[in-house]
Design a protein around this nucleic acid. Structure first.
Length: 527
RNA sequence: GCGCCCGUAGCUCAGCCGGAUAGAGCGUUGGCCUCCGGAGCCAAAGGCCAGAGGUUCGAAUCCUCUCGGGCGCGCCA
């Protein structure tokens, strides 16, 4: 819709045009301040330019009214144009809001350590990434979803040790608990399973711990994937940190070549301060083992070798200190660090009947993503996360989302959608039967609703480009509200305008449905 | 101590690349079913936008400081 308007304007103007959303309804559907920028080029009064432009545009069929007001050109779309677009959208649901093929994006998200099940904090990043990918793909980006598995280092040994000790306890063997180990029911479950499948002998010799760790890690990855699948989240690629170290010599060599690293106190440091970091960071320890950062450097080096146009990482906000050093490494390889974008996913605090929960993976009293999915459903969980910006703290009460009434926004939207379906049923009409119906003669409120429903494509682009997915949930809630009000004010079935109003309802439902689908939620046809 | 994020209505949050009466949902209070689903609609009350300075014709929005909360500040991942 916006695209058609822009195309039409560009036919008359040889200058990039910006379209704005007017503050007030009386100014029409769109407005452009183009006359102000043209004024400088043409050395003419913006008011005059706006008026001349308005005259030319008035003959365009897509506009009903074009007005020059104080240098702005206000545009009101014509009823036939809106109607025609609506008909097309209804007949091409799959393509509604689809964008032209655009840039390729590698989106990395979740990337939780395979040392335990996903908790509620991971869920937020998981949902955000999943929906960013869905929406991005819809508006035309080629998006690949990637999970970086931190399967190297001490934590995996710790996982093995934890299972080993839990297994010994289960078997009635002597156990000395160290200071640091993973707790939680899942460790005990894992230990029991290990005893059953690998045999008790695994728990009689500490030498077996690495083997146990490897096994446990695979189990945990499978569990994590189950957790994700329950919420409808999937990945295209998995990259193992451990496998990357085979490339370390090569990458380290490049860093040396570029004078990006230096040796001091027996360690190797990267000069990340040269690219905005607070201090230089160790990449190789005294004993020669590369640090965790080294893994990330290899990972991002290889990422950029893969030739995507853009890279987006969704990280937990507790990793924000890492941004500068990773970007510094990218800069040393001669890439533009701007092509890597980090979206931070802030902490989630969960309440249950007002009681706060603490989340600590190590302590084992964290809230499992799978528990919440089971308790309130994946749809509700997705929806809460998508109503807030990702980088602000979020708090919600599980009990609120379990309510099946209007305090739960997803019901409100679904109800609007379901209402449309029940109207068609009541009228005994199939939806496609009204697709070609003309909307001529409907009142202003009907066209307001129609315009709003047809706005979805623009909302999607805006939400994706600004990485502000909450704009979609907000839009859907507003649209549902408009429809509820419209429904209340207009009798539909059995009126002379029945078929027109049914078509309008179908368009609204279409937008709600497509919007929800991109959030990973299937709209209800009946409740 | 330093860095980042945050502090907007009772609650959860939008708005924040400055612009005209600060928004939504929930909650509260009061209305609306002879009518297509009342899982809905309408209305009201409720805010010195944490505080203090500053820039500006104009600040919730930009700058500085203070207070309050969170997260980082590992050669852990």
């Amino acid at each position: 819709m916006k695209r058609r308007v822009l195309e039409t304007l560009q036919k008359h103007i040889d200058h990039p045009v910006v379209l704005e959303k007017p503050r007030e309804k009386k100014f029409g559907h769109y407005a452009t301040p183009i006359a102000f920028s043209l004024a400088k080029v043409l050395r003419k009064n913006p008011m005059m330019i706006a008026e001349e432009l308005a005259e030319k545009l008035e003959n365009e069929a897509i506009f009903e009214r074009v007005e020059a007001v104080k240098g702005y050109v206000n545009l009101k779309l014509s009823a036939p144009f809106l109607d025609e677009f609506a008909t097309w959208a209804l007949k091409n649901e799959e393509d509604f809001g689809k964008g032209e093929e655009g840039e390729s994006v590698l989106l990395e998200f979740v990337s939780a350590n395979p040392t335990g099940p996903l908790h509620i904090g991971h869920a937020r990043g998981a949902v955000w990434g999943d929906v960013l990918a869905r929406v991005g793909a819809h508006v035309g980006k080629k998006i690949a979803r990637e999970y970086y598995i931190n399967d190297a280092g001490n934590q995996i040994y710790l996982l093995g040790l934890s299972v080993y000790l839990a297994g010994r306890e289960h078997l009635g063997l002597a156990v000395t608990w160290p200071e640091e180990y993973y707790r939680g029911e899942y460790i005990v479950d894992l230990a029991k399973k290990a005893v059953d499948t690998l045999g008790a002998a695994m728990f009689e010799d500490e030498e077996k711990i690495p083997e146990l760790a490897d096994w446990a890690k695979e189990e945990m990855m499978a569990l994590i994937n189950d957790n994700l699948a329950e919420a409808g989240i999937f990945f295209d690629h998995y990259v193992s940190e451990k496998s990357l170290y085979a490339r370390w010599d090569e990458v380290f060599g490049k860093l040396k070549e570029r004078n990006a690293v230096y040796e001091q106190d027996g360690k190797w440091w990267i000069r990340s301060t040269e690219h905005g970091d607070e201090k230089d960071r160790v990449v190789v320890r005294e004993d020669g083992r590369p640090t965790y950062l080294a893994g990330d450097i290899i990972y991002h080096y290889l990422k950029f070798e893969r030739g995507y146009d853009r890279y987006i990482n969704i990280w937990g906000a507790d990793h924000h200190g890492y941004i500068a050093r990773v970007k510094a490494a990218i800069a040393f390889f001669g890439h533009d660090p701007q092509r890597l974008e980090i979206i931070l996913s802030q902490m989630v605090s969960l309440l249950k009947n007002g009681e706060p929960y603490k989340m600590s993976k190590r302590a084992g009293n964290f809230i499992l993503m799978s528990d919440i999915v089971e308790e309130i459903g994946a749809d509700a969980l997705r929806f809460v996360f998508l109503t807030k910006k990702s980088d602000t703290h979020l708090e919600f009460d599980v009990e609120d989302l379990k309510k099946e009434d209007n305090s739960n926004p997803i019901y409100y939207i679904n109800y609007a959608h379901a209402r449309v379906f029940s109207l068609f049923e009541k009228a005994g009409v199939d939806q496609p039967a009204v697709f070609d119906e003309s909307l001529e003669g409907l009142d202003e409120t009907a066209y307001d609703l129609l315009f709003s429903a047809l706005l979805l494509p623009e909302v999607l682009v805006d939400a994706y480009e600004s990485r502000q997915l909450q704009k979609i949930t907000e839009y859907l809630r507003n649209l549902a509200g408009m429809y509820h009000k419209f429904y209340y004010d207009h009798k539909i079935v059995g009126t002379p305008n029945e078929r027109k109003l049914l078509k309008l309802s179908a368009v609204t439902a279409l937008s709600l449905r497509v919007g929800l689908r991109l959030l990973g939620i299937e709209a209800a046809k009946k409740m």
